[in-house]
Design a protein around this nucleic acid. Sequence first.
DNA 1: GATATTCTTGAAAGTAATTTTCAATAACTA
DNA 2: TAGTTATTGAAAATTACTTTCAAGAATATC
Lengths: 141, 141
Amino acid sequence: MKEELRIFNAFIRAKGLRRTVQRERILEVFLATERHISTEELYRLVKKCHPAIGFVTVYRTMRLLVESGLCGEIDFGDGLIRFEHKYGHRHHGHLICLKCGRFIEVVNPEIEELQEKMARRHNFRPTKHKLEIFGFCQRCA
Amino acid sequence: MKEELRIFNAFIRAKGLRRTVQRERILEVFLATERHISTEELYRLVKKCHPAIGFVTVYRTMRLLVESGLCGEIDFGDGLIRFEHKYGHRHHGHLICLKCGRFIEVVNPEIEELQEKMARRHNFRPTKHKLEIFGFCQRCA
DNA sequence: GATATTCTTGAAAGTAATTTTCAATAACTA
DNA sequence: TAGTTATTGAAAATTACTTTCAAGAATATC
């Protein structure tokens, strides 16, 4: 059994919720794709193997996954919320291509460090942060 | 005449569009407020002095202002797009308080420099970027 | 294992912000 | 000044997300 499923079940139990077939299937499908994916896209993938599962259940399950910490929300400002795996992933920023829409995940501890310092200078207690760089990738430049 | 208005008129002319009273009034009201403001909020301000100007005109004018570079869009992920002055302002990130909603603008050339480097390392040509740090301000911590 | 309780589901309806449509009007061009 | 084309404001449409609700499913209790 995948570690993520174990975490999810623990989370479900801790909140007094119920394990359901739908939730497990949705988590499986989510874990099986490595792309950043919107609720609508995930719903379409889920429907391929499990036609009886509805959009709203996918939507609600994603909220639980976010709350459990297994899944992160990304908002590139194009009016769509996407999700990415969070378990076992370091915090990262994104280089987003304005032409082809592809993106690169970037990890940079130096920048993170400077951010922390900057927050402290303003007596601000940071909980999460977001770094997005828009531009053109090698292929589209 | 304000420099911003001159820039806006040049932009309008270059695009083969037309100068209108409404657009100038909306720009004036936008420039007169220093807050980050949504289309709806700006519309309400505009309506106070110019009741005949409609929401859609404000909406469309803001798009032109963004395109002209006079105005920047901010998306804190709360489902509302806000606008800020861009002419004569250095690029800055935001420290956003999750409790009271207030934010601090922060300028940090070191971080900007590291971002540039990081982009180059990935053969990425950056055009704009966004740094947002969420957390709690001194008052709400 | 049966029963009661409460959560979960899926469809449909609702919400909120943004965006488009369209006919009347206004600004520029020749 | 007349003709062309952009602009306006109201209303309708769109989009993504969120809530509602009745039927069904999972867990706890007996």
